[in-house]
């Protein structure tokens, strides 16, 4: 082939060349992504397919098209209640938890090594103690021995004990409080680690540039430097706030009084584990998934503005 007639590379050849040049990259990706494909991607795809069937784990599934989804939105009133509860949960606990994680991580970061480790443990304790929310059973017991009732009776605010978890109007607010208490988890630890990777010389430089107080330092130096961790924390926060179920089931029961504590995931568990209607449960999971994906898009857009 003469040098003059060297063919212009087509798009496909260019792609093939890039792929060849990135062999080392693919080799590093392979172990993880092979496992990821089999144990995560494939099950998710299968679930989405199941959501279009009437599979009940006993009989052979029939394809039913959009029927599950139509039923979900048009006939299932409990789903609407649980959707509303989940959105309230997410809108309140999501941003507040996120801020708390950041605030506490940031304060703790000021301490030296040993006190920092111990303080981190104290704040992470609810997340590491397994079913730590059972403490709240003591606090919220409905008779006068429950700590909250006892306190309010002693202060003379109420005259008789309140059945906290059996009274519709209290269930959701109290579950939100418990969820907030539990919120210093994954995001919190990743923020602590993230703060450790912020280059300390940037603070010195910022002080010289005229950063006056710690709040300015936080906004102009710390937060922009840990943007990747902020993104990570946000995704974890979304997956947690939208998937609240354990505390609701353990504290308020499933079903809860008049479905006051029902969330999308408690509804999903009701169909998936109790009634074995996997087709319908998968449809609920798919709707929840789309809800989280949409929220994630929005949140990532907002976080893009940090430090501007």
């Amino acid at each position: 082939m003469s040098s003059q007639s060297r063919p212009v590379r087509t798009k496909r050849q260019e792609l093939a060349r890039q792929i060849r040049n990135s062999r080392a990259c693919y080799a590093m990706l392979a172990p993880y992504f092979i496992l990821f494909f089999f144990f995560t991607v494939l099950p998710v795809l299968m679930s989405i397919v199941i959501s279009f069937t009437d599979w009940n784990m006993l009989q052979f599934p029939n394809f039913v098209g959009w029927k599950n989804y139509i039923k979900l939105f048009l006939e299932d009133e409990i789903f609407m209640t649980s959707l509303k509860n989940t959105l309230i949960f997410a809108v309140v606990t999501g941003p507040v938890s996120y801020m708390l994680c950041l605030l506490f991580a940031w304060i703790i970061n000021e301490f030296s090594r040993i006190p920092r480790t111990l303080l981190t443990l104290v704040f992470y304790a609810p997340s590491i103690c397994g079913n730590a929310y059972m403490v709240w059973n003591l606090i919220l017991t409905g008779d006068r021995y429950g700590y909250l009732n006892g306190l309010l009776l002693n202060l003379g605010i109420i005259n008789e004990p309140i059945l906290w978890m059996q009274t519709e109007q209290y269930v959701l607010p109290l579950l939100i409080v418990v969820q907030l208490w539990l919120s210093l988890g994954t995001g919190f630890l990743s923020f602590i680690a993230g703060l450790q990777t912020v280059d300390k010389s940037m603070y010195e430089a910022a002080a010289i540039d005229g950063i006056k107080n710690r709040w300015q330092e936080l906004w102009y130096v710390t937060l922009p430097a840990m943007k990747p961790q902020l993104m990570f924390g946000a995704v974890m926060q979304i997956t947690q706030s939208f998937a609240v179920a354990d505390i609701s089931i353990n504290l308020a029961g499933n079903p809860s009084v008049n479905y006051a504590g029902a969330t999308i995931v408690t509804h999903l568990l009701d169909y998936g584990s109790t009634r074995m209607e996997m087709g319908y449960a998968s449809a609920i999971a798919t709707v929840l998934f789309l809800l989280m994906v949409g929220t994630n898009k929005l949140v990532q857009k907002i976080l893009g503005r940090v430090g501007e």
Partner: peptide, 21 residues
């Protein structure tokens, strides 16, 4: 993006396909 999205799918329903695999 597959990795990020995978975290948002409810674990309860993927359990059964995973068991099958």
């Amino acid at each position: 993006s597959m990795v990020v999205l995978s975290m948002m799918f409810s674990w309860t329903v993927t359990q059964i396909p995973q068991y099958a695999i």
